[in-house]
Design a protein around this nucleic acid. Structure first.
Length: 567
RNA sequence: AGGGGCGUCGCCAAGUGGUAAGGCAGCAGGUUUUGAUCCUGCCAUCCGUAGGUUCGAGUCCUUCCGCCCCUGCCA
C-alpha cells in the first residue's frame, strides 16, 4: 500500500487535492486526539459478488485507514445464513486483494461475535429494554403503524424480565418454530423514525450457517449486530451508505445501553451510480440467472470480477474511485470517467502489439516471395525501458479490411488505390490494384513497397498519408477476439417504470474468429494487458482462452476522435 | 403525525461570509511511423427558487420548488 499521509505534505508547491468530508472529519479527530488510532472496516454481506459500487466503499475505507496511519478490517456481515455462502466469501476476499488492499489481521465475521451478542441481548432483557414478542409478521406490520401514523405497543411488551429470559432461552434452544416469536428492543412505538418502533433484534432461523454450522437457530439482526461488532473491533469510523442514516439513532441506542468496549461513530456517504449500467444485486443476479450474460464475471458486468476478466486494472479502478469523490449527494457518474481511467492506465503501461481483426490480404509484387525480414518494433512509443520486439515482414500481409478503399476523400488517411500508406514499424507501400471475387468483394490488394523507407520518408518526397497496422500472412497466430460494448443502450436502465431487461444492448458482444495476431503474442499470459495498435486494449480471456486457442477480450477501444465525424 | 437527507457547468466535484478550483465530456489548434498519447487555448458574471441580514452571500436566515431514503422476522 502507498503511504502518503495527507497531513505530511512536504512539497508546498504541489497543488493539494482538497479533502472530502470524511477525510476532514477523520483529520479533525486525529488532530484533536479523539482516537489513538483510526480504525475502519469494509463489511460486506457474503450474499453476492462485489461490484463497482463496492469498489468505492473499499477504496474509501482502506484509503482512509492508509492516509491516517490506521487500520481497516474486512468483516463479513453474516447475520442472515439463508442468503450467504462460502463461495461469496471467497470471491469477496479475492476481489479486495486484487484491488490492491490488505486488511488488518485475520478476516472477521460478525458470527465470531454471536456469543457476545447473545449475552448483550440477555442484558437488554434484564434491563427491561427488550422483550420476546409473539406477534407474527403480518401482525407486526399492523402494529408498526405507517409513515404518518404512530404504531401501537405489542400486547407482549410488558412481559416480566423472568418470562422474557425464559422465552428467549427457549428460542435459542429451538423450541419455537421460525416466525413464532422474536426478540425486540423496547424503544418507542410512536417514534417518527420507524427504526425505533421496537425493532427486532433476534429472529429464529433454523438454517445452517456457513461459519457457525448448526450452533445457532436464532440470529441477530443487522441493526443489533453492526454497531456492537464495530465496538468489539474498536472501529472508530463506521462508514456506510446514505440509506442507513435513519438507522443511526438505533445504532447509537444500542451502544449507549450496552457495556461495549468502545464508542464507534457512524457516517454515511452517497452510493455510486453509473449510467448505462445497473448495480443492484438483485438485477445483477437476474442477468446471471436468466443467462443474459456469461456469469457474474462476464466481461460486460460491472462486478469487480467482470471488470477483472474484461481487462480493467486495479490501478484504474482506484483512480476512478479517487476521481469521483465522496459526498452525501446522490448522483450518476458518467461511465466515460471510468473508461478514461482504464485507458489512461493502460496507455501508460500496456506494451503495444499488432493484430488484424478483419484481415484483407496484401501482396507486395516487388518483394521476394521467400524473403523474411526481421523488423524491430518498440513495445511502447514513450517508454524506452519497455524494450523492443521483432516482427517478421513477408511478401504477403494482412491489413484491416477497413484500412483500404479504392477511392477516398482527402480526410481518409489509410490505403487507397494509387496512394501510399506507412505500414507501422515497416515500409511505406503503394496500392496498385484490387482483386475481386465474382460478387465484387475485394479479396486481395496488389501493392509494392517503396524502397528505402524503413525508418525514413520516401526519397522522392511523396510522404505516406497515414499509418496502418499489419501482420505477416504467413507468420502469425490465429486467434479469436471478443469486442464489447455497453451492456445497456439506455443510460438509465433502472429509472422510471422501465424494465431494465428491455434496455439490454443486443450487440454488446461481437465475437470475431480468424483474427491474425503478431507472433510475439504467443507468449501472452492471462494477467497481461496489451494495446493492439489502432484497435484498443486487449487481454486474454481467463475463461475461454486455452492451449489450443487464443481468445482475447477487448478491454476498451482507443479514444477515436475520427469515428465521430463521419469521414 | 410523518421523519431523515440532498440541490454549484452536460457529468463528477472544490468552496467552511471577501468577489466561482479541478477532473471527465465537448470545441479549436500544435506535435506524432497508433485518427492514440502528449502539448496549447476555449468552456458557470453565476451557485434549485423568491425574499431578507450584511460594506460584502454559493456560504447566514426565511419561503417555495425538485429529487433521494424510511412502513423486511434483508443488509
Amino acid at each position: 500500500m502507498t503511504d502518503h499521509h495527507v497531513s505530511s505534505d512536504s512539497n508546498a508547491t504541489e497543488t493539494k487535492k482538497p479533502l472530502h468530508f470524511l477525510q476532514q472529519i477523520v483529520r479533525k479527530d486525529v488532530e484533536q486526539g479523539v482516537h489513538q488510532k483510526v480504525a475502519t472496516r469494509f463489511p460486506p454481506e457474503p450474499n453476492g459478488y462485489l461490484h463497482v459500487g463496492h469498489a468505492k466503499s473499499i477504496c474509501l475505507n482502506f484509503g482512509l485507514a492508509d492516509e491516517f496511519g490506521g487500520t481497516c478490517n474486512l468483516r463479513f456481515d453474516d447475520t442472515n445464513p439463508e442468503k450467504e455462502n462460502e463461495e461469496f466469501v471467497n470471491s469477496i476476499m479475492q476481489d479486495v486483494e486484487w484491488l490492491g488492499f490488505k486488511w488488518n489481521g485475520n478476516v472477521r465475521y460478525t458470527s465470531d461475535y454471536f456469543d457476545q451478542l447473545h449475552q448483550w441481548a440477555i442484558q437488554l432483557i434484564e434491563q427491561g429494554l427488550a422483550f420476546v414478542c409473539d406477534l407474527n409478521a403480518d401482525q407486526m406490520r399492523e402494529y408498526r403503524g405507517t409513515l404518518i401514523e404512530a404504531g401501537k405497543n405489542s400486547p407482549f411488551r410488558d412481559r416480566s424480565v423472568a418470562e422474557n429470559l425464559a422465552l428467549f432461552e427457549k428460542m435459542r434452544l429451538g423450541e419455537f418454530a421460525e416466525g413464532a416469536c422474536s426478540l425486540r428492543a423496547k424503544i418507542d412505538m410512536s417514534s417518527p423514525n420507524i427504526n425505533l418502533r421496537d425493532p427486532i433484534i433476534y429472529r429464529i432461523k433454523k438454517a445452517h450457517h456457513h461459519q457457525t454450522g448448526d450452533k445457532w437457530c436464532i440470529y441477530p439482526s443487522y441493526d443489533f449486530a453492526h454497531g456492537q461488532s464495530d465496538a468489539i473491533e474498536g472501529i472508530t469510523h463506521s462508514i456506510c451508505t446514505l440509506e442507513f442514516e435513519d438507522h443511526k439513532p438505533l445504532y447509537d441506542w444500542f451502544i449507549q445501553h450496552l457495556p461495549v468496549p468502545a464508542i464507534p461513530r457512524q457516517y454515511e456517504f452517497a452510493r455510486l451510480n453509473i449510467n448505462y449500467s445497473v448495480t443492484s444485486k438483485r438485477k445483477l443476479k437476474q442477468l446471471v440467472d436468466e443467462n443474459h450474460v456469461d456469469g457474474w464475471n462476464d466481461p460486460r458486468m460491472p462486478t469487480i470480477s467482470g471488470m477483472r476478466r474484461r481487462g480493467y486494472t486495479p490501478a484504474a479502478l482506484r483512480d476512478f474511485c479517487e476521481r469521483i469523490g465522496v459526498t452525501r449527494s446522490d448522483g450518476i457518474v458518467d461511465v466515460g470517467v471510468l473508461e478514461f481511467c482504464v485507458r489512461d492506465d493502460l496507455d501508460k503501461n500496456a506494451p503495444r502489439a499488432m493484430c488484424v481483426l478483419k484481415p484483407l490480404k496484401v501482396t507486395l509484387t516487388n518483394y521476394p516471395t521467400d524473403k523474411v525480414e526481421t523488423l524491430i518494433a518498440h513495445n511502447h512509443p514513450n517508454r524506452e525501458e519497455l524494450g523492443d520486439r521483432t516482427v517478421p515482414f513477408t511478401q504477403t500481409l494482412f491489413i484491416e479490411q477497413e484500412d483500404f478503399r479504392e477511392e477516398a476523400n482527402k480526410k481518409y488517411k489509410r490505403l487507397v488505390l494509387g496512394k501510399r500508406v506507412r505500414l507501422r514499424n515497416a515500409y511505406v507501400i503503394e496500392a496498385d490494384s484490387a482483386v475481386k471475387d465474382e460478387q465484387g468483394n475485394i479479396i486481395e490488394i496488389m501493392a509494392h513497397i517503396i524502397e528505402g523507407t524503413l525508418g525514413k520518408d520516401p526519397e522522392d518526397g511523396v510522404k505516406a498519408k497515414g499509418v496502418i497496422h499489419w501482420v505477416s500472412a504467413t507468420q502469425n497466430i490465429n486467434c479469436e477476439v471478443r469486442l464489447y460494448e455497453r451492456l445497456f443502450t439506455d443510460e438509465a436502465p433502472d429509472a422510471g417504470g422501465k424494465n431494465f431487461l428491455d434496455c439490454i444492448n443486443p450487440n454488446s458482444m461481437e465475437i470475431l474468429q480468424n483474427c491474425k495476431a503478431e507472433l510475439s503474442l504467443a507468449s501472452a499470459q492471462v494477467a497481461d494487458h496489451f494495446q493492439f495498435e489502432r484497435q484498443g486494449y486487449f487481454c486474454l480471456d481467463s475463461k475461454y482462452n486455452g492451449a489450443d486457442k487464443l481468445v482475447f477480450n477487448r478491454t476498451i477501444s482507443l479514444k477515436d476522435s475520427f469515428a465521430k465525424n463521419d469521414d
